[in-house]
Each structure stands twice: as structure tokens, then as C-alpha cells.
């Protein structure tokens, strides 16, 4: 997480996991968000709750530049305003119907969501190639301990692997859960990348063991 006095950025997903025209649920400390990408490629993050009946918008669908709720098809623009209520085709939805939205930034293959209103931009990750995201039932300390490394100020744990480095960009989901974005530095051939996938599975098992023994209540 990258904080200044007014807010912070948290990495919620890899760009490759959110193709155009799709929506996915992501977690921030305040709860779940619907992270979505329009057909034309813009990313947006909305509260994961349709104000009509409380249905999670991450179960919905993206058509064109709007996100629609799966329950009644109410659709929302990137700015959060309601565009359409299919039960009342003639009605222009009032401005008061809207979902809360968060700022989104996408850089170097990682999608970041703003908590509050951070002044700066999320840190650059030039030279790192995203591999995958996975969730561990472990806190950040347990993951750092399992990796045998320390967390950098950027929230990255580095693990040497052959000629390169596996970088773990960590995002706290709650006390016992961490989202790990795995990024590779200097690991380019297919066999080594597949080996890195397997080593992250091992690392997660180890971190979860440590967490269970040392941190869990």
C-alpha cells in the first residue's frame, strides 16, 4: 500500500486478469469492489452493491461503456451514475441514483485502486513482468517470513530464483488474508516462469503454516 496524507493506492488485480468487457470482485480493507473494464478498455471501480436491491455488482455484466446489475439490469456509468432501469424504459434515472466509485490507475500491468484521495500516483514497476495473483490465508509478516525476506517500502518481497528474482507485491485483504501479485524480474523463458508458478504455490503453503502457528488466534 502506498500512502500519503490524503489517501493511498492498493494493488487489486493484474491487467491481464481483466479483459475488456468484464467485471471482477476485488477486496479492499473497506470491503468488496466491482472492478470492471469497458469495451473500449477503460477501467473503473464501483462499490460492489447495486443501490436498488443490494445485489453485488461484481456478479453483473459489462455492455459497451456501462456496468449492469445481474438482478434487474440497472446499468451504471464509470462515474457511478445510473444510466438505465430496464423495468422503466422511458425513465431517465435521476442523478440521485448512483454507486460510489474509486479512482483507478493502471500501470506496468497492475491495476491500483485509491483509498481516499491520494495526491501522487501509484509506484512504477518498470522492468517487472506480472505472472499471476493469488490469495493466501496468511498475513504479510507470515508471507515475508516464508519468503525469507523483508518487505520493501513499496510493499514488495523479493525472492531470488535462478538468474532472476520473484517479486511479491502484497496487498492486505484483512487480518488473515493477503493478496499476492507475483511479478518477475529477469525470468523470461517458459520453463522458468512455470517453475515460478510452482514455487509461489509452495511459498503460499509455507506462509499459511507459519500464519497458523504464529499469528492465528
Amino acid at each position: 500500500m502506498h500512502s500519503d496524507t490524503t489517501g493511498s493506492w492498493t494493488p487489486v488485480a493484474l491487467s491481464a486478469d481483466l479483459p475488456a468487457g468484464t467485471v471482477m470482485p476485488v477486496q479492499i480493507p473497506a470491503g468488496s469492489l466491482a472492478l470492471w473494464r469497458t469495451d473500449s478498455g477503460h477501467t473503473a471501480a464501483s462499490a460492489d452493491r447495486c443501490p436498488h436491491r443490494g445485489m453485488r455488482l461484481s456478479h453483473g455484466f459489462v455492455r459497451g461503456e456501462a456496468l449492469s446489475c445481474i438482478y434487474h439490469g440497472w446499468s451504471y456509468a464509470q462515474a457511478g451514475n445510473c444510466l438505465r432501469i430496464p423495468a422503466h424504459p422511458g425513465l431517465v434515472p435521476p442523478e440521485t441514483i448512483r454507486v460510489v466509485t474509486h479512482m483507478v490507475e493502471e500501470a506496468d500491468g497492475v491495476i491500483w485502486v485509491a483509498l481516499g484521495r491520494p495526491e501522487g500516483r501509484p509506484p512504477g514497476l518498470e522492468g517487472l513482468v506480472p505472472l499471476r495473483s493469488l490469495t493466501a490465508l496468511a498475513n504479510i509478516d507470515a508471507i515475508a517470513a516464508a519468503a525469507g525476506g523483508k518487505t520493501s517500502p513499496q510493499g514488495i518481497v523479493e525472492v531470488a530464483s535462478g538468474t532472476g528474482t520473484i517479486c511479491l507485491l502484497l496487498s492486505r485483504q484483512d487480518e488473515d488474508r493477503t493478496l499476492i501479485h507475483v511479478l518477475l524480474k529477469g525470468i523470461t523463458d517458459q520453463a522458468a516462469r512455470i517453475a515460478a508458478v510452482r514455487s509461489t504455490e509452495s511459498l503460499r503453503r509455507k506462509a499459511e503454516d507459519i500464519h497458523k502457528k504464529e499469528f492465528a488466534q
Partner: peptide, 14 residues
């Protein structure tokens, strides 16, 4: 998958 799980009876929530 509705939030909140309980049915809101007061206006304003939905």
C-alpha cells in the same frame, strides 16, 4: 449475494 444480508425496512438503504 445481496448486501446487507438482512432486509432493510427503513427507506434510504435501497
Amino acid at each position: 449475494n445481496q448486501i446487507p444480508c438482512l432486509l432493510p425496512l427503513d427507506p434510504g438503504m435501497e
